[in-house]
């Protein structure tokens, strides 16, 4: 906390929303040490549409969970909206997630016992600033409208198809008007038609200014993003910008690199 302003609320528009410096994540299991991520440096600017891709087990979801403050890095620094997350308490991290990060999971992760309306409203009920019921209602309906699911607001998740559930999950992520959407394999559990529909929604949102960071193993969908990161064995090996049509190799992709990472 600096001065009297909550670090969480300090927002500067032109600086990166998220900044990772030398991030590493190591898991320890029995006597085995697994380096899931190492030496990750990344800046996500407002309005970015970033995709993170790579083979299975390369650390994509781990990176996303670190970005979402769902897990903590073993090394390195992580700044979100200029706030160093290293010394934040669990509650401060929760507040940060609630205000600035919207999550979309691969398996939707809606709560079965709540209606669609209540699922989307859930993050708003966790707000410290106590939104009025009418505010919550209008935001929920607006978010549902964005994903064209307004008409199913009274239904339960298990009454919807996979594609519909994923759209509701996106609405839930949007309802809080976050700084960034973190999307984990949004089409992983969907057929191509529904997958395309979801990607269209995400593309539209980015066009409207929403910053999106998406993990996907699908090369087609990865290409929708303006910035693409390719991970291999926990390291960034390629960074490309679709608009500039350039590709930067961060490290040569060789077998020796793979073995060194392990």
């Amino acid at each position: 906390m600096t001065n009297t302003t909550s670090p969480i609320k300090a927002i500067e528009k032109q600086k990166p929303i998220i900044s990772l410096k030398n991030i590493a994540k190591t898991y320890h299991s029995s006597n085995i040490e697994i380096k899931a991520l190492s030496d990750i440096n990344l800046d996500i600017m407002p309005g970015d549409y970033l995709s993170i891709s790579g083979p299975s087990g390369c650390g994509k979801s781990t990176l996303l969970s670190l970005l979402g403050l769902l897990d903590s890095p073993t090394e390195g620094e992580y700044f979100i909206q200029n706030v160093d997350t290293h010394n934040l308490s669990m509650d401060q991290q929760a507040e940060l997630r609630n205000l600035h990060i919207g999550f979309v999971f691969q398996s939707f992760n809606l709560i079965d016992e709540l209606s669609i309306f209540d699922n989307v409203a859930l993050p708003l009920t966790y707000r410290e600033d106590n939104l009025s019921q009418s505010d919550i209602e209008s935001r929920v309906l607006q978010a549902l409208a964005q994903v064209e699911m307004e008409h199913r607001k009274s239904h339960k998740p298990n009454q919807l198809s996979g594609g519909q559930q994923q759209r509701v999950a996106i609405a839930r992520a949007l309802a809080g008007q976050p700084s960034i959407l973190l999307v984990d394999e949004p089409t992983g559990n969907l057929d191509s038609k529904n997958g395309d529909a979801v990607m269209d929604i995400l593309n539209n949102l980015n066009r409207q200014g929403t910053t999106i960071c998406m993990v996907t193993h699908d090369v087609r969908y990865a290409g929708h993003a303006s910035k693409q990161i390719h991970l291999l064995d926990g390291k960034v090996v390629e960074l490309s910008h679709a608009a500039e049509d350039t590709m930067t190799s961060v490290a040569p992709i060789t077998n020796q690199t793979s073995q060194a990472a392990v």
Partner: peptide, 16 residues
């Protein structure tokens, strides 16, 4: 547990 994980991911604090 998973439900609580989702709630925490959405920003639910300990008190909630």
């Amino acid at each position: 547990r998973f439900e609580f994980g989702i709630r925490m991911a959405l920003g639910a604090k300990k008190v909630r």
